[in-house]
């Protein structure tokens, strides 16, 4: 994969570059702020942007705004956003138009090297990856509506879906069988009123509904 990294801390930027390089990815660009990100993306067409939220000059949410700009210029550009802290609004702003190829992780997740590289690859492939803490925050806040009917286990499964995990991944995480997970998922689909069509599409719909209205 050809990756652009935007991170103002030299240490972290080089660390992430080293890590991704170690796993056979090519770092085609390293930026310290998001000022030239859009032109860089247009020039280089990277497979993935790894982007810090807090960047110069104001160190607040430059990264999120840059991500939205990039997606406006290149709607399918996969972006993985790294944040110091979890802020569900960042996630919802990122996912406002299209959740494909968007990731939002706590910065410290890079320490789980294999998981982090895996998340990068999933986002680059058009998947959606959300930090478990974002999901927890969304779950804690969204209490009304169709999600009230979900059992705690189903909420958990939906949260794991939002993190971008596959059925197998969910089953392994919950230490249950694949069949049990499928049963939960079809129950979620029916409770949310999602008709039986393309399963992948319904997954995205369920997660989106969960993120936007839940």
């Amino acid at each position: 994969m050809r990756i652009v990294i935007v991170e103002d801390s030299v240490l972290l930027r080089e660390g992430i570059a080293r890590l991704l390089g170690e796993f056979g990815h090519e770092i085609v660009g390293q930026l310290v702020d998001a000022g030239t990100l859009v032109t860089t993306v247009v020039d280089l067409r990277p497979d993935l942007i790894v982007l810090d939220v807090r960047l110069p000059p104001t160190f607040t949410d430059e990264g999120i705004r840059a991500a939205v700009q990039v997606r406006a210029a290149a709607p399918t550009q996969p972006i993985l956003v790294l944040s110091q802290y979890v802020e569900e609004r960042y996630a919802t702003e990122l996912l406002a138009s299209d959740s494909q190829g968007i990731g939002y992780l706590l910065k410290e997740r890079v320490a789980d090297v294999a998981d982090f590289v895996d998340a990068c690859e999933r986002v680059a492939a058009g998947g959606t990856v959300l930090d478990p803490e974002v999901v927890a925050q969304l779950l804690a806040r969204r209490r009304r509506g169709p999600f009230d009917d979900l059992t705690p286990r189903e909420r958990e499964v939906l949260g794991l879906m939002a993190e971008g995990r596959s059925n197998v991944g969910i089953a392994r995480h919950l230490v249950v069988s694949d069949g049990a997970v499928e049963k939960h998922i079809s129950s979620i689909f029916s409770k949310l009123g999602l008709a039986t069509s393309d399963t992948e599409h319904r997954r995205v719909l369920a997660v989106l509904q969960f993120l936007q209205h839940g």
């Binding site: 240490l11 972290l12 660390g15 910065k107 890079v110 090297v113 294999a114």
Partner: peptide
């Protein structure tokens, strides 16, 4: 955030790579 945390995260990342 900018100092210690960045260093700690890098350290954890390097250890993660070593472990791997």
């Amino acid at each position: 955030h900018d100092g210690v945390q960045a260093q700690l995260v890098t350290l954890a990342m390097d250890l993660g790579m070593a472990r791997q």
